[in-house]
Amino acid sequence: MSVFLVWSAAILAAVLGAYAGEVAEVASLRARAQTAADAAALAAVAESGPYGRAKPESQARRIAEANGARLQECWCEPGAPTAQVTVEVAGVTAEARALLDAGALAPAAMGFDREGLHPLLAGAVERIAAASGGKVWLVSGYRSAAKQARLWKEALAKYGTPEAADDWVARPGTSMHEKGLAADLGGDIAAAVRLVKELRLPLYRPLANEPWHFELTTWPRGA
């Protein structure tokens, strides 16, 4: 009887040991898959931002593979403020979603300068800056034709084609900045959006890939 009990205990220990090993392996695969998913989602949304090359899915796939995973799906449109991915590692899948922090990616503050801005736009920006308690500021307002041409040339060199550059910089002669009717804000962009509504300011954001870019809701006469 004692021999049988010892034998049964040995079998049970072996079974439990094998089960524990499988559980540990699955947990390890899940951790690897989640790490790869997190990294791929972050890479995709960063690639969608102003400092990327507008190829979020390619970047997500590259980063997933670098982490030992295979990209299954990527909901990541160029210029979109969010990205969601699904990756797979040895049959184990994981999902991750990343959000672009527009305030963190906006250029550094340059100080408020009304010169060249339409009075309605300048007044609206000043009210936002004051109401935010310094958390929102003007980054770029009026641009001369020469400055817009320089920015376009830099974008063309960075992105390679006129079509890709168009996603980030307007061509010379077509930018609302050149008319004094556009303002790029820095800092807490979410607060800026909220204040536009609360203060009923005549501003809106026409560019999905530049959430810090604000324009007047209607073109002033003569613009």
Rank of each mutant, 00 (worst) to 15 (best):
A46F: 07
L71K: 03
L42K: 01
A41L: 07
L105G: 04
A109D: 12
D101H: 07
M110T: 13
L121R: 00
V89L: 09
Y19F: 14
T82H: 10
V45D: 05
T93K: 15
A108Y: 05
V85K: 04
L120W: 08
A33N: 06
C76Q: 08
D101P: 02
G49S: 15
P81Q: 06
A37L: 11
E25D: 04
L100E: 09
P50M: 12
V23F: 02
A109I: 01
V23M: 09
A102F: 13
A40Y: 05
A33V: 02
G17V: 09
A104H: 04
A13S: 13
A109F: 08
L117T: 01
Q34H: 13
E95K: 11
L42V: 12
T86R: 15
E25F: 08
R70I: 11
A90S: 14
A24R: 15
E88I: 07
A106G: 09
W7S: 15
Q84V: 04
G79T: 09
A64S: 06
T35H: 13
A31V: 06
G52V: 04
I11A: 15
A90F: 11
A9G: 15
A33D: 10
A14C: 07
D101W: 12
C74H: 05
T86S: 12
A39S: 14
G79Q: 13
Q34N: 03
L29Y: 06
P50Q: 10
S58W: 02
E115D: 12
A44R: 06
E25V: 13
G111F: 07
V45G: 01
S28Y: 08
A13L: 15
A37H: 06
A36M: 06
G103N: 01
G21E: 01
A98M: 09
E65K: 13
Q34I: 05
A60T: 06
E88D: 10
C76L: 12
S28Q: 14
G91C: 11
G49K: 00
A31E: 14
D101K: 03
A18S: 13
S48N: 14
T93G: 02
L120H: 00
A96C: 08
P56C: 11
A64H: 03
G52Q: 00
W75K: 11
A80D: 11
E77Y: 13
T86D: 01
A36Q: 04
A60R: 07
E95N: 07
A36E: 01
L12D: 00
R30F: 06
A39M: 13
F112S: 10
T86G: 00
E22H: 05
R61V: 06
A96P: 04
V23D: 04
S28D: 14
L100F: 14
A94S: 13
H118T: 02
T86V: 15
G17Y: 11
L121K: 03
L16N: 01
S48C: 15
A31K: 01
W7R: 06
A24M: 12
A108S: 14
G116R: 03
G21T: 08
G21P: 03
R62D: 05
